[in-house]
C-alpha cells in the first residue's frame, strides 16, 4: 500500500534533466495557473525524469502511480482497512497528493480502468475537487497541487485511446526522442561513456526508429541507450551489450533481431 509519509516523496537532489525545448516554462506556466499536465511521448523519452525535475524545481513532493488495467478509483482515492478488529481509513496516492499539495503523476493513464475518470475529471478542471465518497468528504486541491498524466501515442488503439473529454482538460507537452546532440549528452552523463560511443549509440537508435514499416512498433529509447552504455562501461563487449540491451529488448522476430544486430555491428 501507498506509504502515508509525504516526506518520502520530496526529491532531495537535483535530477539530471536536459530540456528538449521549452517544456519547463510551459509546465511552470500550467502549474502557476492550476492547469493539469499531459505528457505525450514514446517509452523512455524522459517523461518520468522530467516530472522529477519539475517536482524538484517547484519543491513539491512527487507521487507517481503506474496505471494498469486493474487500477480502480479506490486505488487512487483510498479505502477502509481492517486490522486487529479495527477499521481505519488509508488515503490513496491521489488523496495524499491533494491533502499535501503534491504532484500526482499518473503514468500510462490510458491503462487505468474507465471508472477512474470519475475522480480524474473534477480534479483536472477548474473545480479541482476530489470526492472521497466512502467518507463523504470533498477535498478542494490547494494551489500547490498538480495533476499530471502521461500517455504513449504509439500504443494507441480504439479501446485504449484517451477520450476527448479527458484530454481536453490538460495542457499537453510532447516529449519525443531528443535530437542527436542532446541524446548523446544524456547518454554520456547517465552512463558515463565517452563521446564516440555515445554518438554511435545514438546513430543505432535512429536506425531502429525508422523500422516501423518493417514491423518494429517502436525504436530504441534513450533509456535503452543508457543501459547499453552502462554495460559497456562495465567492460561488456559493445556488440554484446547492445544485443542484450537494445536488440532483444526491441523484438522477438528473428529476422529483425538479425537486422538490428547487423546495424550495430556496422556502426560499432
Amino acid at each position: 500500500m501507498q506509504s502515508q509519509k509525504i516526506e518520502e516523496h520530496f526529491i532531495a537532489e537535483k535530477p539530471f534533466y536536459l530540456p528538449q525545448k521549452n517544456e519547463l516554462a510551459v509546465a511552470l506556466a500550467a502549474y502557476g495557473n492550476g492547469l493539469p499536465l499531459l505528457l505525450k511521448g514514446p517509452t523512455g523519452s524522459g517523461k518520468t525524469r522530467f516530472m522529477q525535475f519539475l517536482a524538484w524545481t517547484i519543491k513539491r513532493p512527487l507521487i507517481t502511480v503506474s496505471c494498469h488495467d486493474d487500477l480502480s478509483t479506490s486505488d487512487l482515492v483510498g479505502r477502509y482497512l481492517i486490522r486487529g478488529g479495527e477499521t481505519f481509513w488509508l488515503d490513496g496516492p491521489m488523496t495524499l497528493a491533494v491533502r499535501h499539495g503534491a504532484i500526482c503523476y499518473l503514468d500510462e493513464v490510458v491503462e487505468a480502468r474507465k471508472d477512474t475518470t470519475v475522480v480524474i475529471h473534477p480534479l483536472a478542471d477548474d473545480r479541482r475537487q476530489l470526492a472521497i465518497e466512502k467518507r463523504g468528504e470533498l477535498l478542494t486541491a490547494p494551489k500547490e497541487f498538480m495533476l499530471a498524466v502521461s500517455y504513449n501515442p504509439g500504443y494507441q488503439s480504439v479501446l485504449k485511446d484517451m477520450k476527448q473529454s479527458t484530454r481536453q482538460r490538460f495542457v499537453a507537452l510532447e516529449l519525443n526522442y531528443p535530437p542527436p546532440e542532446l541524446e548523446s549528452e544524456i547518454i554520456r552523463h547517465e552512463a558515463g561513456v565517452k563521446e564516440p560511443l555515445a554518438h554511435s549509440l545514438v546513430r543505432i537508435a535512429a536506425m531502429t526508429r525508422g523500422l516501423k514499416d518493417s514491423g518494429l512498433q517502436e525504436g530504441a529509447s534513450t533509456r535503452l541507450l543508457v543501459h547499453a552504455g552502462l554495460l559497456i562501461r562495465e567492460g561488456i563487449a559493445p556488440r554484446e551489450a547492445c544485443h542484450g540491451t537494445i536488440t532483444e529488448a526491441l523484438t522477438d522476430d528473428r529476422e529483425l533481431v538479425g537486422a538490428i544486430d547487423e546495424m550495430i555491428s556496422s556502426v560499432i
Binding site: 518493417s214 518494429l216 529476422e255 538479425g258 537486422a259 547487423e262 546495424m263
Partner: peptide, 9 residues
Amino acid sequence: RLVPYIRGL
C-alpha cells in the same frame, strides 16, 4: 534480414 537492415541503416 537484409531488407530491414538496409532500411534501418
